[in-house]
Design a protein around this nucleic acid. Structure first.
Length: 852
RNA sequence: GCCCGCUUGGCGGAACCGGUAGACGCAUCGGACUUAAAAUCCGAAGGCCCAUGGCCGUGGGGGUUCGAGUCCCCCAGCGGGCACCA
């Protein structure tokens, strides 16, 4: 028996794949293609279990597709710009570039031990000069197309990271990386006009039928389309009317006040002359965006003394400034209808404003219906509303908008929650924005032939903030026409880098343009994208926008970058804490008689919740250690076997041991039979023994089920199927007269089914079975329909829906025979207990139900 | 608060379109091999009971159906997303 040495076998096949360039994609457009991509990693320095899971899942798809005859593109790269590199620079005095490329080298070596079917010839890092150059070129294209603009605006300022954050990067009022409470600051920023595509991005979600519903819903919510109307209210003694946005124009006759955002221009104008109002505005600003403040903050208002006029009745409506009105949604002003909006009601009660119900709930009495502490937001018919009386809500909306439009007092309008994407970051380690400014502030884009604008390397990280601003020379330059200018010192949000890398992989060597049209037209869109759900909004929405922008600027001919998306669950592990509340590493505890003890002190340890592996909870397992001890196949198998890929996977010692045992058992199984099988290429055409027929049937049903299972990411079931097949092969008597033929087919199929999941073992097995080529390049087995049909079936027999027995019959037995056979069963007769049979339901090959 | 998802043995999880609930594995128990252990192999196993049989059983309650883990309604618990969004 040949010994199976994991380390040797795995490095051997990895070397062979590399030497033969097995996984390099061919730009052969005559072939059907399949682009499989996992979200590229940030080069933090070490791979973690999340990476192992992510890349294993993608690799199964890539390898299976390759075997199925597709020209597969499966590349890998590095999301290489970002703050951690600068932090390392500050803490350890190492240059971000050095740190980043060193980490890339380490992680590349680690990834290579996983035996992934990656095309390393296409590797890229977003900090590579050529990538920076092409990204800047794209920026200029977008600028020329009017999709990039600069404006002064209130921004989310992260005081710890000293940079601006996009709305998507503010989580619960805190910076997504630093966790610091975000401040409001007014700055000049560059924006991508993502809202230009808001409607298209929303509408196209319906076409993304291979995306998880959850992600589609999250994107819909994020875009946040709401249809309503923009109304104009005349204000006494003011020339300009006040515009408000509402989704409930039908409740216009219930309006009892208007409210302005504290930072509304009208509020600001008034505050300039009214110190008390200015104080109120300042008070609101202080509450800021902190979430607790918001939650606790009462509805606060300040009567501006202005009087607005109802656009139809002309009734006077007081105008307040109010803390709950947001400047960056709608028009920054609302009309309040207290009877049908809870916030407006709270506000009205506090300031003694009128509450007039205008929507009458079904079956309510108009004479007695009143709103007390709870606004009525349900359905009903309008009343107290002049020409709207009697209409349903939707009809009333249409009617009132129509009437207001005639009067020039408003029109229907759609608003979005989605904001334009602010991409300026006051950081060093990012892609420089290719813009210069003249002394008078005029914007001059960097000329194409001056690209790339590269980062200076002699920078000082000893002070907080952006070192580019402090650099003695970098920011100053003389334009080709001799004018003096200064460079933009902000760099781009790193989400820009990841918004087009998938397209760049199609032609990573092209130094003249961002993408080669022929290559992207062939490869894009990505057929299967795999990654974590945490990017459901940020990265995935930006990439969808960017693809549209690249289409608008003539780079691609598609709108949607990712035809299929799979979001995998997290890798979790138990947590342990000692009596002092310190988290303990899994290595630092041991189990004894069902109790957990600290290895060093022997003290009892509390077992905490199962949580996502994280450094802060000390519950990580280093994949390198696992691969060293058990091999890549073992780690991969464990990643696939226990949980469905979209759910969380709990890492357990027992689980990895189980995978280890199975691999060894598999090898023994194949090795012990390899010399007994018929010569290669023999197919068991018509085995005669029952056992051989049964095995052959199982081989084909397994192929069929596996093929479908892999398509649907049912990898845990695929592992179960393979185990069932190998169990059956194990149980098969090698002395059977048809043994050599059937075993040849069964083992060949087994090796090929294993190949996407545990590729090294599969190659070793394939070679041991006498095949000269690689299993990675062998065709995917096909199920023969003839062998998918069972010869006999077991049919359950029920009496009144309760199982009373079963029948073993030939497949396709007729109903009458089944009915009779079922009624003949002793158990059925006993259950009937002499009662008359009312009806017998027969579902051929499935079930018989006797009803009494 | 609003929206979405989930809930099946001791555990992870199977169960296509409503048709034998618990595949496959982990842990457990028993046995074989061994001086012994590990490894390996064989076997048992949802719970309960008057045990070749019966009753109960997919978070709880109701409904539709010959038949419900699966479909419908209500409730609970857990997880996630969004949130003064007008």
């Amino acid at each position: 028996m040949q010994r199976y040495s994991v380390r040797e076998v795995e490095t051997k096949w990895q070397r062979i794949w590399e030497e033969r360039r097995t996984f390099e994609a061919r730009d052969d457009t005559s072939q059907p293609k399949c682009y499989v991509l996992e979200m590229f990693p940030y080069p933090s320095g070490r791979i973690h279990m999340g990476h192992v899971r992510n890349y294993t899942l993608g690799d199964v798809v890539a390898r299976a597709r390759r075997m199925q005859g597709f020209n597969v593109l499966h590349p890998m790269g590095w999301d290489a710009f970002g703050l951690p590199a600068e932090n390392a620079a500050m803490q350890r005095g190492i240059h971000p570039k050095t740190w980043t490329y060193r980490n890339i080298a380490e992680m590349r070596a680690q990834l290579k031990t996983m035996g992934l079917s990656l095309d390393w010839s296409r590797e890229l890092a977003t900090c590579d000069p050529v990538y920076v150059q092409q990204q800047q070129s794209l920026f200029l294209d977008l600028y020329e197309a009017g999709l990039v603009y600069r404006k002064e605006s209130w921004v989310n300022w992260d005081p710890v990271d000293q940079t601006v954050l996009a709305n998507e990067q503010v989580v619960d009022g805190r910076g997504w990386r630093s966790g610091a409470i975000v401040e409001r600051k007014k700055l000049s920023q560059w924006f991508f006009a993502i809202t230009r595509y808001a409607d298209d991005l929303l509408a196209a979600i319906d076409q993304l039928d291979r995306w998880p519903d959850k992600v589609r819903l999250m994107q819909q919510n994020w875009i946040g389309k709401s249809t309503g109307a923009r109304l104009r209210f005349a204000i006494d003694d003011q020339d300009e009317p006040l515009e408000v946005f509402t989704t409930r124009p039908d409740t216009l006759f219930g309006a009892s006040f208007l409210a302005l955002a504290p930072d509304h221009p009208l509020t600001s104008t008034l505050a300039a002359e009214r110190p008390a109002l200015a104080a109120f505005v300042a008070e609101c600003a202080k509450l800021g965006t902190s979430e607790e403040a918001l939650a606790k903050a009462d509805k606060q208002g300040f009567d501006t003394g202005l009087m607005a006029r109802h656009p139809i009745t002309g009734a006077p409506l007081p105008v307040y400034a109010a803390n709950f009105v947001l400047m960056d949604y709608g028009t920054g002003a609302i009309f309040g209808c207290p009877a049908h909006d809870q916030r407006d009601l709270d506000f009205a009660r506090k300031y003694g404003l009128q509450v007039t119900p205008v929507v009458l709930p079904p079956d309510a009495d108009p004479a007695s219906f009143a709103v007390a502490d709870e606004a009525y937001v349900g359905p009903g018919r309008l009343y107290n509303s002049d020409f709207l009386d009697g209409l349903e809500i939707e009809a009333a909306k249409a009617r009132v908008v129509e009437r207001l439009a005639e009067a020039g007092a408003g029109q229907g309008e759609t608003t979005y929650r989605l904001r334009d994407w602010g991409i300026s970051r006051q950081r060093y380690w990012g892609c420089p924005i290719p813009i210069t400014y003249l002394d008078d502030g005029t914007v001059v884009p960097v000329a194409r032939d001056e690209l790339p604008v590269l980062l200076p390397e002699d920078v000082d990280f000893s002070l907080p903030g952006n070192p580019l601003e402090r650099h003695p020379t970098w920011r100053h330059l003389t334009l080709p026409d001799g004018r003096q200018a200064r460079r933009e010192t902000d760099t781009m949000d790193t989400f820009v880098d990841s918004s087009w890398y998938f397209a760049r992989f199609c032609s990573p060597g092209d130094d003249r343009q961002p993408v080669s049209r022929r290559a992207v037209d062939y490869w894009m869109p990505v057929d299967q994208y795999v990654g974590g759900v945490e990017h459901a909004v940020l990265h995935l929405l930006y990439s969808r926008f960017f693809t549209r922008a690249m289409r608008a600027t003539g780079h691609v001919s598609i709108d949607e970058p990712f035809a299929g998306l799979f979001t995998q669950g997290m890798v979790t592990h138990r947590t342990f804490q000692n009596a002092d509340g310190q988290w303990l590493e899994p290595d630092a505890v041991r189990e004894e008689d069902g109790r957990w003890l600290a290895v060093d002190t022997g003290a009892t340890v509390t077992v905490g919740r199962v949580e996502k592996m994280s450094k802060s909870k000390h519950n990580t397992i280093d994949p390198q250690v696992i691969i060293q001890n058990y091999g890549a196949d073992c780690a991969r198998l464990f990643m696939l076997s226990d949980s469905p890929p979209d759910r969380d996977l709990e890492w357990t010692e027992a689980g990895i041991d189980g995978a280890w045992r199975y691999l060894n058992r598999l090898w023994r199984l194949i090795d012990e039979r390899a010399d007994l099988v018929a010569p290669a290429n023999g197919v068991a055409a018509g085995p005669t023994s029952t056992a051989a027929q049964a095995l052959k049937r199982q081989v084909h049903t397994t192929v069929d089920a596996m093929t479908h299972g892999l398509d649907r990411f049912h990898f845990n079931k695929a592992v179960a199927l393979v185990r069932e097949l190998s169990n059956a092969i194990e149980a098969f008597d090698v002395a059977d007269p048809d043994g050599p033929l059937v075993l040849r087919e069964a083992l060949d199929v087994l090796a090929r089914l294993l190949a996407p999941m545990v590729p090294h073992l599969a190659e070793e097995a394939w070679a041991r079975l006498g095949h000269p080529g690689l299993v990675a390049e062998a065709g995917w087995p096909k199920a023969d329909p003839v062998w998918l049909v069972a010869s006999t079936v077991t049919i359950a027999v029920q009496v009144n829906g309760k199982r009373r027995g079963e029948l073993e019959v030939a497949a396709g037995s007729d109903e009458a025979g089944l009915r009779e056979a079922a009624l003949d069963l002793d158990n059925v007769q006993r259950a009937l207990d002499g009662r008359a049979v009312r009806k017998v339901i027969v579902v051929p090959d499935r079930i018989v139900n006797v009803v009494v």
